[in-house]
């Protein structure tokens, strides 16, 4: 479709134990940098970047990532995604992940920052096959506003659908609309400004892992509150409210370490940003 501001289509496959790109296609204001294989990993990390520097009024982005059987991938961004004023039409970003049997995807983008009068709708559809493992995170951040208001953006909508073997197994729908919601009051942001989520789907999920994650997060410093709960399929959601992006990033990072250690006895690579 030519109406997209930026399109990215990445297909990964497992070639004799090493995950490599089978095809990479991008067009318009969406790019990936050359893959980095950290610490002699058998799978790469791809960095997404937005050459325009931010999302503008009416921009539409589409990202499709397909992982073949047993293919593995880390996907992140080079820096935060900035959404500027959208006077006429919200920014729309669509993300579609197809994960074949026993594939592994870590999608750990930087924060999405919504500036004054910005409106953004992000829709994620994730189709998984049996044995696939997903680590998905997002961070929603209010941008600086000249008047110093805490929530100067217009609307942030984030919808995530996760399917396992073509059946919907998790559905998440966040809509933050400061004009109609009492953001600082009970039930909304509870006095915090930033919202972080980590959604994990993996057959190895256990109560012991959840307990360990809970204790690990509790030991983190800084002002935040969080919740942790199992999904209807093996997997869980962690939700974090805080006042700084860094606090949420740190919590997501320690959780990532705990998961990698419990499941693979490995340490995740530090995702260097250039």
């Amino acid at each position: 479709m030519s109406e997209w501001t930026g399109v990215l289509d990445l297909v990964m496959e497992n070639r004799l134990g090493r995950s490599v790109a089978k095809s990479v296609y991008f067009q318009g204001a969406f790019k990936v940098m050359r893959p980095v294989y950290f610490n002699k990993n058998s799978y790469p990390c791809y960095y997404l970047l937005n050459p325009g520097g931010g999302y503008l009024d009416g921009d539409r982005y589409q990202m499709k990532v397909t992982l073949g059987e047993r293919a593995m991938l880390t996907l992140t961004t080079q820096s935060s995604t900035k959404v500027y004023r959208t006077p006429t039409k919200p920014v729309y970003q669509e993300t579609i992940f197809h994960m074949k049997k026993d594939s592994y995807l870590e999608y750990l983008p930087d924060a999405l920052i919504a500036y004054k009068d910005a409106s953004c709708y992000q829709k994620n559809s994730i189709y998984m096959e049996k044995g696939a493992t997903l680590l998905y995170s997002d961070i929603l951040t209010p941008g600086w506003s000249p008047e110093g208001e805490k929530f100067s953006y217009d609307m942030l909508r984030l919808k995530t659908e996760i399917y396992m073997e073509n059946q919907l197994v998790a559905f998440d729908h966040i809509k933050l609309h400061p004009a109609s919601q009492h953001m600082n009051e009970l039930g909304f942001m509870e006095g915090y400004t930033h919202l972080g989520s980590l959604i994990v789907v993996g057959e190895k999920t256990s109560d012991a892992l959840l307990d360990r994650l809970y204790e690990t997060i509790q030991q983190e410093a800084g002002e935040f509150t969080f919740g942790l709960s199992k999904l209807a399929v093996p997997g869980f959601t962690i939700r974090i409210l805080a006042n700084y992006t860094q606090v949420i990033e740190r919590i997501i990072s320690v959780c990532h370490h705990v998961i990698s250690d419990e499941w693979y006895q490995t340490k995740p690579s530090f995702l260097r940003k250039y």
Binding site: I174, L176, G187, F188, F226, G227, S229, R239, L241
Partner: peptide, 19 residues
């Protein structure tokens, strides 16, 4: 399209109830 919208604080309190 608005189906299933949930406000973060409410959901957090429901998760936190487990503990």
């Amino acid at each position: 399209e608005e189906f299933g919208v949930v406000s973060p604080g409410l959901e957090l309190s429901q998760m936190q109830h487990e503990r």
